[in-house]
Simulated scan of single mutants.
Amino acid sequence: MNNPTPAPFTPPCFEFDGQPVPLQPGDTILQAAQRAGHDVPHLCWHPDVSASASCRVCTVQVDGRPVAACTTTAAAGQRVQCHTSELRTHRLHLLQMLFVEGNHFCPGCEKSGNCLLQEQAAQAGMTELHYEALNPERPVDASHPDVLFEPNRCILCQLCVRASDEIDGKQVFAIGGHGIGTRLLINSESGQLGDSNLDVTDRAAHICPVGALLPKRVGFAVPMGQRTYDNEETRG
């Protein structure tokens, strides 16, 4: 009597915009979807540090319920929707608010072409601010010999906070304040970056998705046409 051929192993999956996505133990929705080649818009997520769900740009609907894809555990059988018209509108408004809450002038920023905020705005089809610009007064901190802190571009993603804590072990940064007064704090007696123990080789000095933390003397080193997002279809 012949033994029956065992059925091939099928990994557990969830549905992402109608497509099956295999998952591994401990996966978040964002991790599994990105690994499967799906785009999940995000700003405050980075694979090198823990997730915080602070920006909510990665919001998806799981079985009809809105959740942050970067912190929600993936489970077999979930029905995840990411690119509905409702969620696209939600992301567009979030991005517009980020632009008016700070002072973002993309043509004059050395991060242009490598800026995740700029790219997400382009993907969302953002063509105007919609809301009234707040134009906050935020003085630039150039006190560090090797790293510039430009708070006008900070989107409070907390990536530098987590990188300094989890990777560098220094806890140079923190978030403080409330409402429009919320800001990135620097762990030094003066509150200046130059008086902190940040080093230009620290991961926190390079993880910023926008142009808030920038190594000095390397501005515009990558020519146009070779930057991360220069050749994206969304650029036209």
Rank of each mutant, 00 (worst) to 15 (best):
A174N: 13
T59W: 02
N187C: 03
R162V: 01
L213D: 06
F9G: 02
V200P: 04
G169P: 04
S52Y: 09
G177D: 08
L117G: 07
V140Y: 05
R217Y: 07
E232S: 15
G108S: 08
A33Y: 09
P223L: 04
V62Q: 04
L95H: 06
C70F: 06
P8C: 10
G102T: 09
N187Q: 08
C109N: 01
Q78A: 05
K216H: 02
A124H: 09
H104A: 07
H178Q: 14
M1F: 10
P139L: 00
C44H: 03
L23D: 05
A51V: 02
I29P: 06
Y131R: 04
G219A: 15
C70H: 05
A121T: 13
P215N: 08
A76H: 08
A75E: 14
P12R: 06
C55P: 08
R88D: 12
E137Y: 14
Y229V: 05
A51M: 05
L94R: 04
V100R: 03
D141G: 04
E233C: 01
M126V: 11
A32N: 06
P12Y: 07
V222Y: 01
R138S: 11
Y131D: 13
Q31A: 10
D230N: 10
R203V: 07
S143K: 00
R235C: 00
D146R: 10
G26Q: 06
V172A: 01
V57K: 00
I167S: 00
Y131C: 06
L214H: 13
P136N: 05
W45E: 12
E232T: 09
A32R: 05
F149N: 03
V21S: 03
N114R: 00
Q123I: 07
H93E: 15
S50N: 10
E128F: 12
P8S: 10
G211Y: 01
A174L: 15
R91L: 09
Y131P: 07
E233T: 06
P151Y: 01
N103P: 12
P151C: 02
Q31Y: 04
R153N: 11
G102A: 08
G37D: 15
F105W: 08
C70A: 06
P139V: 00
V49G: 00
Q226L: 13
G191A: 07
F9H: 12
R79M: 05
L193I: 01
